[in-house]
Computed example of a mutant assay.
Amino acid sequence: MGSEEDSPVMKTVKGAVTGLAAGTIWGTVVATWYDVPRVERHVALPGLIRTLKMCGSYGVTFAAVGGLYIGVEQLVQSQRKKRDYVNGAIGAFVSGATVYGYRGRSIQSAIIAGSCLAFTSAALDIGGNTTKVDNGKEYYAYTTEKKPAH
């Protein structure tokens, strides 16, 4: 794989896309559990429309958090020239504070959300429970070698 795919920009995009997918799925789950569809006049398929709005809302939020987290983490890593839990914690704090602070429209909610995400990120990294070890290589579930002809 080329170095283009391992660039901080590509990692940031991948983080945002992953967040979008996860958020959309989570939005569907939340809509199914909590958002009992109301019957509304002049709205075709009200349950579906409300579910799609919720999916979009969660998807965009998760995409913003994922993209900001990876982007800030990569930026901090390039500035510090170190790869440790601090990069992830800073990325998590900035993404949590920015996204959830904006949504909550208060400094207090920004600090709380950023701190919670930073603590979680640092705890996972320090404990070695990261969801992915980034060693610069990508692994695929298939092989690129051709099968021998029988």
Score class of each variant (00 low, 15 high):
21 A>P: 02
21 A>E: 02
25 I>R: 03
25 I>P: 00
28 T>D: 06
29 V>G: 02
34 Y>M: 07
36 V>T: 05
36 V>A: 00
37 P>K: 03
39 V>T: 07
40 E>P: 00
40 E>W: 04
41 R>A: 15
42 H>K: 12
45 L>G: 04
47 G>I: 11
48 L>R: 07
49 I>N: 04
51 T>F: 06
51 T>L: 10
53 K>N: 14
54 M>I: 03
55 C>A: 14
56 G>L: 14
57 S>M: 14
57 S>G: 12
58 Y>L: 06
58 Y>N: 03
59 G>W: 09
61 T>Q: 03
65 V>W: 10
66 G>M: 09
66 G>F: 09
67 G>E: 06
69 Y>A: 13
69 Y>H: 13
70 I>T: 11
70 I>G: 01
70 I>H: 03
72 V>W: 11
72 V>S: 08
76 V>T: 07
81 K>A: 11
81 K>H: 13
82 K>Y: 07
83 R>M: 10
83 R>Y: 07
84 D>I: 13
85 Y>N: 07
85 Y>W: 15
88 G>F: 14
89 A>Y: 12
90 I>E: 01
91 G>Y: 14
92 A>V: 14
93 F>D: 01
96 G>S: 07
97 A>V: 06
99 V>S: 02
101 G>E: 08
102 Y>I: 06
102 Y>H: 04
106 S>C: 05
109 S>G: 03
109 S>Y: 02
111 I>D: 03
111 I>L: 15
114 G>C: 11
120 T>D: 01
123 A>F: 15
123 A>M: 15
124 L>H: 01
125 D>S: 05
125 D>I: 05
126 I>M: 00
127 G>Q: 04
132 K>S: 10
133 V>M: 06
140 Y>C: 09
142 Y>K: 11
143 T>F: 03
